[in-house]
Amino acid sequence: MSRIERRFSALKAEGRKALIPFVTAGDPTPTTTVPLMHELVKAGASVLELGVPFSDPMADGPVIQLACERALEHGTSLNDVLAMVAEFRQQDQQTPVVLMGYLNPVEVMGYETFANAAAKAGVDGVLTVDLPPEEGAELSAAFKAVGIDLIYLIAPTTSLARAQRICAQASGFVYYVSLKGVTGSASLDVSAVEQRLNAIRTVSDLPLGVGFGISDAPMAAKMAAIADGVVVGSALVKRIADNRDDPQALLSQAADLIAGMRKAMDDV
């Protein structure tokens, strides 16, 4: 059983939901990331999503675009991100870490090289936003060989038949994109998301994480009531950006947001 599966089933046994914070690795500086990851775990994170900075983050809104730019100003590379995960693993062998990013840095490193290095660093899952299952067979095989979950997205535009095909190839959990748009968008329709999640549950037993547009504790609680996991990205990255000149405030502000969400989700 993978670390991601173990975590979801343990939470399920406790009647709790996964809280999955997203931060961009290397934002605002490379040395911030590992302490921040530990801080997020202490505040109640169940799984960590670590964004791999990319020069052309097409699926991201302005908040994460700027986070990528800050990380790239420090030259944060895919290798650097793997080194951060390895460093995190020295103290934490329990919390699953999922890398989220775009395909090109992985293409350039090479699928097998990346899969081996990621497994060695302690990465549990990888979500490449611009790699649909149709193009994913080769990377998926490389990940299977080393026990890494390839996390796929399901969107509001995905038909149920397609969702079923995606779930058949997915492992770990499935990431439901709650709205048509980029990360950090507003206007989430909770009942529409609930309907879709219920439909997907008829074709898959995988845990369902929901992300895009979840910005505060009340919304996290609402999503926790209907999903197995809640991803919070832009709201957290914005707090990091707002406190980027004060490392202590950055850590405590980020922890506050996650702790507040954790509490609201557990109170449901």
Partner: peptide, 8 residues
Amino acid sequence: FVAETLME
């Protein structure tokens, strides 16, 4: 090579 939202 696009995000899932654009596939259909």
